[in-house]
Design a protein around this nucleic acid. Structure first.
Length: 198
DNA sequence: TTGCCGATTACCT
DNA sequence: GGTAATCGGCAAC
């Protein structure tokens, strides 16, 4: 079993990290049990200069504060009053960028994931940002936790993914962001059935 | 303090 | 295809 990705991994270019996270294993040790999956879909959010980012224009509030810390922390927030989204912060201090984890291929803890989710095929257990938080047992109390050691969340190196195997598209659900709505910042494993949508 | 709206999902026709 | 659910963040008043 390989060790968690360490700080230097997270201090680099956000788009590069979003690509390299594909094929890595995301592990969540919640109070109700552990589960993990291969990351098969991500999106990059480029902070100050990205109208789709919560930190656009350098916006700094209680919610976004963690993004200004060094990369390698969890940024977890509630959307639509119902669902949590899990992001991994990236870049050095004062660079409020992050990568949204959009889908996993479940790997360990599958009975628990099935129990946490409604009756769905295994491929759909974590096929979406809200779904994967539910399946893994991610909670908002995990917001701000350090991904590089000691916390409930961590990422391990996993499968090697070639450039040809990576699909690229515009991000999902950011139609409000003007021209940024079409920026090619969504990355996914081509042909993987666990991606949130084709 | 008010009011709008969202980095979604499930279920409806 | 359409939309209800549900509430915290945030900007404006």
């Amino acid at each position: 079993m390989s060790a968690a990705l360490a700080r230097p991994f997270y201090l680099r270019d956000t788009t590069t990290i979003a690509r390299e996270l594909l094929g890595c294993e995301l592990v969540c040790n919640s109070e109700t049990g552990a589960a993990s999956g291969l990351i098969v879909e991500t999106e990059a959010y480029l902070g100050r200069h990205d109208p789709a980012s919560h930190a656009f224009g350098g916006r700094r509030t209680r919610r976004t504060e963690i993004l200004y810390a060094p990369g390698g922390h969890a940024y977890i927030y509630l959307v639509y009053g119902l669902h949590l989204c899990l992001n991994l912060s990236t870049g050095p201090t004062d660079t409020p960028e992050c990568v949204l984890i959009r889908a996993l291929q479940s790997l360990t803890g599958m009975p628990l994931m099935r129990q946490r989710r409604q009756q769905v095929p295994d491929e759909r257990l974590a096929a979406g940002p809200g779904r994967l938080c539910r399946a893994l047992g991610v909670s908002k109390e995990m917001n701000g936790s350090d991904l590089t050691g000691g916390g409930p969340l961590l990422v391990r190196p996993g499968q090697r993914v070639t450039a040809e195997a990576i699909g690229v598209s515009a991000r999902i659900g950011v139609d409000y962001a003007g021209a940024a709505r079409s920026w090619p910042l969504r990355f996914f494993m081509r042909g993987n059935p666990c991606v949130s949508r084709p």
